[in-house]
């Protein structure tokens, strides 16, 4: 192998179709950046799920004297029913803790909640507050079981599964992730076609050289390597540009997003690093494969 001979061939090839090379670099960069953003959203959703799963609980609200709920029939829950309900909740599989929250405690929490409008806080009295059980779970996926166990029991006014709220939010993130991946696939297809075209042009530009190389008995590796390396270098440069895009995305989008939502689950730099590595490797592989497959068609050896 004469490394500098092959490198000079690669350099000549890249310079000869500079515009095509730039087009390849740009599409690979955008495609890989979208792919990386998809990976980042995926990582973000996972860390957020871990964070929230510890906090998912089911609230079981009990009837009070003035309860407007039809299931209560205007009657407050009796102390016997409270004990029965607590036993029932405790014996439900997957439940780790059942905490009773009386009207006083609920009122205090309500008053502390700054999100509630001030006038509403002022007119609400202790008697208006519901009593509830807050049920903590070992595995948040089992929350439906708890909901089923509590619903329809005597003295139960309503059951609220916190998970339903989170599911909406995660659903939004999931579709963002899907959109990023879909966009990545489209752009990757475009870059594959561009690479194929570039290699074809390159093979045509150098048909004299390759014809002579075949004639004097150069091995297939020697003939094909410069073309494949052209694709590889374009892919690598595109990958580096996409890494910069991902770093910017982390700082500008993800960090701000977290500051806004105050979610306490920071996207770590090592996650960004692995997303960059993943998209870099994918970019180079796609370019090399696309070059190689095109060569088989346009460079008969």
């Amino acid at each position: 192998m004469r490394a500098n001979f092959i490198l000079s061939e690669v350099w000549i090839g890249l310079r000869r179709n500079l515009t095509m090379t730039i087009a390849v670099i740009v599409t690979v960069a955008v495609g890989m950046a979208m792919f990386g953003v998809g990976l980042l959203i995926w990582a973000q959703v996972n860390t957020m799920k871990d964070f929230w799963d510890d906090k998912v609980e089911v609230s079981v609200f009990m009837c009070t004297k003035n309860s407007a709920d039809s299931d209560c029939k205007g009657k407050a829950i009796t102390p016997d029913q409270v004990t029965a309900l607590q036993e029932r909740l405790k014996s439900t599989p997957g439940v780790t803790e059942v905490i009773y929250e009386g009207q006083e405690a609920a009122y205090r929490r309500f008053q502390e909640n700054q999100a509630v409008e001030k006038t509403l806080r002022e007119v609400t009295r202790v008697e208006d507050m519901p009593t509830s059980f807050r049920v903590k779970l070992a595995n948040p996926d089992n929350s439906d079981v708890v909901v089923k166990a509590a619903e329809g029991q005597p003295g139960v006014s309503s059951v609220k599964n916190h998970r339903d709220l989170l599911d909406d939010f995660f659903g939004l993130l999931d579709s963002l992730q899907l959109a990023a991946f879909a966009l990545a696939i489209i752009v990757v297809i475009a870059s594959i076609l561009l690479i194929a075209n570039t290699v074809r042009l390159s093979a045509y530009n150098r048909r004299r050289e390759t014809a002579i190389m075949r004639l004097v008995g150069a091995s297939n590796v020697y003939i094909q390597l410069p073309f494949v390396m052209e694709g590889m270098i374009a892919g690598l440069v595109g990958g580096v540009v996409s890494s910069v895009m991902l770093i910017v995305a982390k700082i500008v989008i993800f960090d701000r997003f977290q500051a806004y939502l105050a979610i306490g689950s920071q996207l770590q730099w090592d996650t960004v690093a692995s997303a960059i590595l993943g998209s870099l490797v994918a970019g180079v592989l796609i370019c090399v494969l696309a070059s190689f497959v095109t060569l088989r068609r346009y460079l008969r050896v």
Binding site: R2, I212, M213, G217
Partner: peptide
Amino acid sequence: FALEVIGKP
């Protein structure tokens, strides 16, 4: 060129 492409030193 004929020698370079067959890897001669």
